[in-house]
């Protein structure tokens, strides 16, 4: 398999997953805002920080009003991480590797891109937002499901699985981070019920509410939710599950020493920290640490499998 093709498949999967998770991120904050009593405004600026897009955002927008942030995350062409930009990138990456993917995958990606492009305006309105986000999440899942159900289990499949799960692991931590940097103190007693509502919201945004209720507990509490989202091996959006999937697929490739060591280091970090016991600040730092680990893993994969950076640079200047 060509290195360029592997790289394109990997990024295609990452960008589809990023579009889906950015939609989840906006969704969870919208609902958090709605559940918050008057007088307390959790605000929208944390989303920009969590997405790691502080500089990009402030280059184009003055203030972090709901309208500005939502527009930035959903449809801003200047934001390489917006839903629309992610889908453009997914489509461009898919375009050159159509022959290694099922034919229907290209069509589905193309359709989702067109849906996003045509509906982005209504997605910016408050009443149209949920429908738009549902459309993005559903469309992304259709692509992922299609690859899962018809794609030949060759190296292309493994690269798509690695890309998807790395992105998912990363975004799951970011979605949890939205909650951990909110404005409430940890021990405010009267906030208890509010707190519960918010953790339900996080679970829902990751489609994990049902599984959590069935397999973990009926009562939704911060320690249990954190434990579930980081350490649960059966829930497919948990950090552990994502990293396990990456580990499995990397294991199917050659020349993987540094990548596997990197994954094992991530797993060790996870095992050595009981996330449920971390306070907000410690959790935030721990999440930062995991995200750095993911970036490191990406670099190891790129070194082992993708085109040398010089070549990529040349192409960008074309």
């Amino acid at each position: 398999m060509l290195s360029r093709v592997a790289e394109n498949v990997y990024w295609m999967a990452r960008y589809v997953e990023r579009a889906e998770n950015t939609a989840r991120l906006v969704w969870v904050n919208s609902h958090l805002v709605m559940d918050t009593p008057r007088g307390i405004t959790p605000g929208w600026s944390p989303l920009v920080e969590i997405a790691g897009l502080h500089d990009v955002f402030h280059a184009v927008e003055r203030d972090t009003s709901e309208r500005n942030v939502v527009r930035f995350l959903i449809g801003d062409a200047n934001n390489p991480g917006s839903i629309l930009s992610s889908l453009v990138a997914a489509r461009e990456n898919c375009r050159t590797v159509r022959d290694v993917l099922p034919r229907s995958a290209w069509e589905a990606i193309n359709e989702l891109y067109l849906f996003a492009k045509e509906n982005v305006q209504s997605g910016l309105t408050k009443s149209g937002r949920d429908d738009f986000l549902d459309g993005i999440i559903g469309g992304s899942q259709r692509i992922t499901g299609m690859l899962g159900s018809v794609m030949y289990r060759d190296k292309a499949w493994h690269f798509s699985r690695i890309g998807r799960n790395l992105e998912r692991a990363d975004m799951t931590t970011r979605i949890i981070d939205v909650r951990s940097t909110d404005l409430f103190a940890d021990d405010l007693h009267e906030m208890r019920s509010l707190d519960t509502l918010q953790w339900i919201s996080v679970l829902r945004s990751l489609s994990g509410y049902q599984s959590y209720r069935r397999h973990v507990a009926i009562r939704v509490s911060r320690p249990d939710v954190l434990d579930f989202l980081f350490h649960n091996a059966q829930f497919p959006r948990s950090f552990l599950h994502c990293i396990d999937s990456v580990y499995e697929s990397v294991g199917e490739l050659e020349n993987t020493g540094p990548s596997l060591r990197c994954i094992r280091a991530l797993k060790r970090k996870l095992r050595d920290h009981k996330v449920s016991e971390l306070d907000q600040q410690a959790l935030h730092l721990f999440i930062d640490d995991l995200q750095l680990g993911i970036m490191d893993l990406h670099s190891r994969l790129a070194e082992a499998f993708f085109l040398p950076p010089l070549q990529v640079q040349m192409q960008e200047s074309a």
């Binding site: 050659e254 085109l307 192409q315």
Partner: peptide
């Protein structure tokens, strides 16, 4: 393949850059 997928080594032979080398 695109141009950047290929290279000519000192043995004047053309190679593709693949995930297996």
């Amino acid at each position: 393949v695109e141009g950047r997928d290929l290279f000519v080594d000192t043995d004047d032979t053309v190679y593709m850059r693949t995930v297996d080398g």
